[in-house]
Design a protein around this nucleic acid. Structure first.
Lengths: 282, 282
DNA sequence: CTTGAACCTCACGCCACGTGAGGGGCCACG
DNA sequence: CGTGGCCCCTCACGTGGCGTGAGGTTCAAG
């Protein structure tokens, strides 16, 4: 057990007895001596944890020196996070039981700290993911996403879509992914790109069963990042040909892939009752 | 910002859309998919944070894929300790506001951790103080309490009085004392011993004003450790002569001090209406 | 005697649900 | 077509540790 120098801000137990006049203190006085509110003393009285040993004829509470000493003890354990019910037992328990109780309390506090530390870490990752899009070092990014990958693409993406709900959703999921997760995802994506390239070489026609299946696979792939509805998918399909970045990206995989991809996505959307011509980002 | 590997236990956002049948999920289904209780979903619905977009004719809640996605997002922030009211804002806030909110949340969590760490330290000290009586290294003990001090005296004291409320009170106060505090206390104690020795040499009579003042100073000195009533004081006075340890301790300061101390304490108690012959430990 | 501060006792509010009570809906098997 | 069993519904109170009034009484000083 370490005995560090840290202590809770200097408590006042100033010769307790001296500070209490012989006829006792009223609630307000006791409250300010002990350093809690009047309502708190009322509550401790209500639940029977620390009651004044006397009342005036008019019904006002009177705390004598022993009462105030007990209030101080209660406050001490309260500041350590011990529940009121346990404090009652602690104050009248034999030493060994009290020690067990304190150890359990300490364990709970430590466990609580661990949970909060994980929350803090997760929050940190989440904030970072919302800012930068991905939580990997530049080296890892190149290793996982390949030579063609430029880390600044993420920042451009954030500038363009950062205000959408989908970016938030993407960041929330990205914050929770490890390098291994990204590797798995990229393996799937590359397999898909391979299959798309094969299909476009083999002249698979948009609207065919095979094309629709591939379009759905592509949508599922996008849904790894954020929930991609068919309507969103159709919107994305338009930018595959309109956006130079997308166009280059897909046509570098296979000549003509961008346009063909838009076509199979549109046909697939239509097959599911979504008109790609009027599709909006919902 | 550190980007550590710690993450909350692998969340399931398993192609969300796929897991939700086209006609939506009932509360029970949604609850188990999202990993919360049915009552929680009812509550989120009640407060308007996450409501199902449909109901069956019979009034049953139906969560579609988008609803379930929102539930997942709410659960994420809930696990990070964000209050429900803030989550509502977070989910529909522009990126920058959301980031501020997350940072505030992170700050609060970190502050909470600091408070808990101080509590844990204080608990640690308290447990240690209850066990060993004093939180100083043997070297410090010898330096502060002098050569005559034997650290094992504390353990004997605990064996003898460890079950009393006063030992608990002593430990609670000792847990909060620094070496400087102990030095101040010992300076006072030694001054008192000096004055007692002088008085006994000068033949001050028990019951005299000066003797009573010294007895009260001695009682105040004991009250540094625990609230020492006049009744307790009279009990202690008996052991000053009956207990070989006490006897030696005081007579080493000045021959005859132990007996004289008992006498002035008794006389002082009597002067305050406490009969030392029948005094009990209260 | 009068002020004004401090005190009294209800009693509801908070936060995020847990835990029933009492009653209705849904689906499959007979 | 009934019936059993499981799921669902809406109240509505309980939890912890008080905060925050409302409406009335007591206390000490002037």
């Amino acid at each position: 057990m370490t005995v560090t120098a840290a202590r809770l801000g200097r408590m006042t137990h100033p010769g307790t007895a001296d500070a209490v006049p012989p006829d006792g203190l009223t609630v307000g006085g006791a409250a300010s001596v002990v350093g809690v509110t009047v309502r708190t003393l009322h509550h401790w009285d209500e639940v029977g944890l620390a009651r004044p040993s006397q009342r005036t004829s008019g019904g006002h509470r009177l705390y004598d020196a022993a009462d105030v000493a007990r209030l101080h003890r209660v406050r001490l354990y309260r500041e350590l996070g011990v529940p009121l019910a346990d404090i009652g037992a602690l104050l009248s328990a034999p030493t060994d039981d009290a020690e067990d109780s304190l150890r359990r309390q300490l364990d709970q506090v430590r466990e609580h700290i661990r949970r909060l530390e994980r929350s803090a870490d997760a929050l940190d990752r989440l904030i970072e993911a919302r800012r930068s899009g991905i939580l990997l070092s530049p080296e890892e990014q190149v290793e996982i996403f390949g030579e063609r990958w430029d880390p600044s693409q993420q920042l451009q993406a954030r500038d363009r879509w950062g205000d959408s709900e989908q970016w938030a959703q993407y960041a929330e999921r990205a914050a929770d992914r490890s390098p291994e997760d990204w590797r798995r995802i990229m393996a799937d994506v590359e397999a898909l790109h391979g299959d798309l390239a094969t299909a476009v070489r083999e002249g698979v026609r948009p609207g065919s069963e095979r094309a629709n299946a591939l379009a759905e696979r592509h949508r599922a792939s996008m849904s790894t990042y954020f929930d991609c509805t068919r309507s969103m998918h159709a919107c994305l399909a338009r930018s595959f040909v309109d956006d130079p970045g997308f166009l280059t990206f897909y046509d570098d995989i296979e000549v003509g892939l961008a346009g063909w991809l838009r076509d199979i996505v549109d046909a697939n959307a239509l097959a599911h009752g979504v008109d790609p011509a009027t599709a909006t980002w919902t």
